[in-house]
Amino acid sequence: MAVIVTVEIPGGTREQYEEVMRQFEGVDWFPADGLVAHAAGPDGDGGWKVVDFWDSEEQFLAFVERARPIMERAGISSMLPTVQQAVNVILR
């Protein structure tokens, strides 16, 4: 079942996000299996927000386990994910 994952990163910055993305370029498991689409930007409350579509919650959780050390090295220690069922995902 496809899911929508919204991740709030309180205090997260564009610089931290870009550092994480640079580090992901060096691993062979990114983009991760199950990732359908990804978007990120400032959340308006002084933090950062990520919205992803995944094939399943299990694939998202497996990704987080692999990605956690990279995020922590970039200074991201707190993430607040919300997972909900996606009824439909349309890609152009």
Score class of each variant (00 low, 15 high):
M1A: 15
M1I: 11
A2V: 10
A2G: 06
V3T: 01
V3H: 05
V3A: 04
I4L: 15
T6Y: 00
G11S: 02
G11Y: 09
G12T: 08
T13D: 07
T13R: 02
R14W: 04
Q16S: 07
Y17E: 12
Y17I: 02
Y17F: 10
Y17V: 08
E18T: 01
E19I: 04
R22I: 04
R22Q: 13
F24N: 09
V27Y: 09
D28E: 08
W29A: 10
F30S: 13
F30E: 09
A32Y: 03
A32H: 13
L35D: 02
A37D: 13
A37I: 07
G41K: 08
P42V: 09
P42D: 13
D43S: 05
D43Q: 04
G47A: 01
K49F: 01
V50T: 07
V51R: 12
F53S: 15
E57H: 00
E57W: 11
E58D: 15
E58P: 01
E58Q: 14
Q59F: 07
Q59W: 07
F60M: 05
F63V: 02
F63P: 03
E65V: 06
E65I: 04
R66K: 15
R68F: 05
R68K: 14
P69S: 08
I70E: 02
I70M: 10
E72P: 02
E72T: 14
E72S: 01
R73K: 05
A74D: 00
A74V: 03
S77Q: 14
S77L: 14
S78G: 00
L80N: 15
P81T: 06
T82H: 14
V87C: 02
I90H: 13
R92T: 14
